[in-house]
Structures are given as C-alpha cells and as structure tokens.
Amino acid sequence: MTVDWQTIADAFGLGGMYALMAVGIGLVFGVLRLVNFAYGQLVMAGAYSLAFAYERGWPVWTGILLCFAVVIVLSVAMDWVVFRPLRTQTPAVMLVATFAVAFLLQSIALLWFGPLGKIAASLSSLNQPWTVGGVDIRKISIVSTAVAAGCLVVLLLILARTNVGLHMRAAAMDFRTARLLGVRANRVIGTAVLLSGLLAATVAVLMTVQTPLVTPDFALRDTILVLAGVVLGGMNRLLSATLGGFAIGFAAGFLGGALPTDQSQYLPSFLFAAVILVLLIRPGGLFTRAGQQAVERV
C-alpha cells in the first residue's frame, strides 16, 4: 500500500463530490420518500451541456450557466412528469420507476450523442498541481473539497435560517402533520427538487474536470455508490446521509488510489459487502442515533 498526499487529497475531493450527490438525493428523499436512482443522469445531462459548450468554444462561464439551466429544467421536469403521479405509491415502486427513468435518459443520451462520448475540458487547467508546503496536490482535489464544503454550509444556512428551510425540515419529519400546520406541499417539494438540481449541476462541473470524457453512462457508477453510501449513513437525516456519501467517496478514492490494481479491481465488492453488513447490523444507518430507523426489518 502506497499512501501519499495526492491520494488523500483525491479521496477528500471524491468524498466531497459524493457528499454533494448524497445531499441532492437526501433532500428529495426527505420530502418525497423517494430514492432517485436517476440522479446520476441529471449529472450526465449537465456534463453533456458542458461538452456542448466546450465543442463550440464558448467561454467557461456560458458553459457553466448552460449546465445549470439544463440540469434544473430537467430535474423540475422529472418531478412534474414522473414523481408527481407516483407520490402515493410505495417506496419500492418509486425506486423501480426512477430506475426506469435513469435507463430512459441514458439511452436518450446514447441516441443523441452516440456511444463514443464528448469532451468537456474547459476547466482542465484545474488538473495542474499546486505546491503546498513542498507537496504537489492537484488543484481540483482542493477545489472539489472547498466547493463541497461551501455548498454544504450554504445549504445548512438555508435549512436552518429561512422559512422554506424550516418547512422542508418539518416536511421531512412528518409530511402530513406539516401540511396540516400550513406547510405548502408543492412549494416544499419544488424547492427540494430545485436545490437537488443545483447540486447535481455543481457535481457535473466538478466531475467533468476529473473525467472530461462524457459518455452516456457518465456518473452512473457514482450514483450507485452514492445511493449505497446514503443508505449506509442513514436515509432519514440529511446529515447522516451526507456523512455516508462522504464516507463511501473517501473510501473509494483512498482505497482505489492506495491499493495495487490486482486488489483494487475488487473494490466495488468490498464496498458493497460493507454496505450489506451495515444494513444488517445497523439498519438505521451508521451515523444515526439509536431508535431512529428509516428501515423496517422482519
């Protein structure tokens, strides 16, 4: 095992990115009780918009604006077309439905852009190293960590200090009671969907720096890992879900960088075995207090 600062910084960067995705998934889960399997396809759509802008030589900020616009429109559309009609179904049915949406979006991307992939390299200068105290660390690792931390702080402020944040927390705790007390359901859900879209767009920008080649299955593997991480941390609180996302991102980044190839190829197996183990031993999640269980057992 070889550990250097770059590996640790990369692990932090990946952990931060996964934490953002975990928040995006956790926000929607909080108000809708819906696990959005298609979240990665929002990131994919954002990445394609960046590639679109890059191919035409547009300035960086136009590309990022386009990315945010596309992802937000898509996430709101997803809410209107798919989530709304399914609100009354069981969580398992909704999971299958979002699984279908994920495949649908992925194959639309395949049809539209082809299997070979597009390049989105407008921010590739961030892959250059920074020298910090005699150690070279790629800028993107630091930028990802910083952006993730910044987003989380802003989100925390929104949730703690604003009216709509209070409503969202109330809705996440008990949707029916919250509605009885005057919380407007559609507004709360709309805000959650919007915020999770913003986060997906941010992740798309960060992720294209690390992997500039955008293919139809862009972010698919990451979503699967983040979903596992969210369940691992504990679905019913945003904080525990975020920590779970960070933990699995950090573990994946660290072990992937530190282990030799003949061992790291089995990394997904170890990660998912760990997830299954946690589900069995602490079904409420690693980072939840005793007595809080989102998961029922038989």
Binding site: V231, F272, I276, L279, V295, R297, V298
Partner: peptide, 21 residues
Amino acid sequence: RLSGLAAGIATFGVLEITHNV
C-alpha cells in the same frame, strides 16, 4: 431480514458484487 428500500439497495449490492467477482 430486510424490507423495502434496504432490501432494494442490499440486493443491488449482491448484483454489484457478483458482477465484479
């Protein structure tokens, strides 16, 4: 022993592990 979402994610884990191995 698991139900609902946890069962969904755990069985997904089985698919990932089997495929990987």
